[in-house]
């Protein structure tokens, strides 16, 4: 057993919509070791994205404790969280979220800028990553000139630019066809084997979920199954 990267204890998330409080996460305990590959499944509205947002420090839990790679983060201020996100976590979203005003290259280099990586190094790293995901010939293109699968590969390259310990992917293949899906999943597997990051993927696809070394099933704000 290696280092614990994600340690969630009694995580509760309640949304307040007007007078009504909506409990979405009702007490999540989850521990993930460094280097693990975890799939999260569950019905729509079960709270998977809410959980991912908390794990990714995009949101704070209403109650409970979260220790990320040894740092207690559940009480940190917003700007401390954004620092941790940039350094430790890579994100891949269903709808890519690339910046349309920038080239592919600039998109991938951008997260390194917030970690004060020098320009030359940023360019070298971005080029290397884009070549690695098979887009070495598209460096100067804009995201809207690429296909969905290509965009997601840019997003993956971007998510890895700061060598994160933790890669979070919320339905990364949700907008792709089956061929695109297969390519992206293969890429994830290769990259993880090379770099050894921890990976959490939310998916609706049972084939993907069942193929993962560990599967966590969420229903109605609680973990109902954790299979290794």
């Amino acid at each position: 057993m290696g280092e614990i990267i994600v340690d969630l204890q009694g995580i509760v998330k309640t949304y307040q919509t007007g007078e009504v409080s909506v409990p979405v996460l009702k007490g999540i305990d989850l521990r993930i070791d460094a280097g693990e590959h975890v799939a999260i499944m569950g019905k729509s509205g079960a709270g998977k994205s809410t959980l991912m947002n908390i794990v990714g420090c995009l949101d704070r839990p209403t109650a409970g404790d979260y220790v990320l790679a040894g740092h207690p983060v559940s009480r940190l201020e917003d700007d401390e969280l954004s620092g941790i996100r940039g350094k430790t976590i890579g994100f891949v979203f269903q709808s890519f979220h690339l910046l349309g005003s920038m080239t592919v290259m600039e998109n991938v280099a951008l997260p390194m800028e917030y970690q004060n990586v020098p320009t030359a190094q940023r360019h070298a790293r971005a080029t290397e990553l884009l070549e690695r995901v098979g887009l070495g010939h598209r460096l100067g293109h804009r995201p809207n000139q690429l296909s969905g699968g290509e965009r997601q590969r840019v997003a993956i390259a971007r998510s890895l630019s700061n060598r994160p310990k933790l890669l979070l992917a919320d339905e990364p293949t949700g907008n792709l066809d089956s061929a695109g899906t297969r390519k992206i999943l293969a890429l994830f597997a290769e990259l993880q084997a090379e770099s050894g990051f921890t990976m959490i993927v939310v998916t609706h696809d049972p084939a993907i979920g069942n193929a993962a070394p560990r599967l966590v099933r969420v229903a109605d704000g609680l973990i109902v199954e954790d299979r290794r």
Binding site: D79, H97, Y114
Partner: peptide, 15 residues
């Protein structure tokens, strides 16, 4: 808003 959130997600500070 999405673009701003993206910047924030990849590590840009609020300021």
């Amino acid at each position: 808003r999405r673009e701003i959130a993206t910047l924030r997600a990849i590590g840009a500070p609020r300021s």
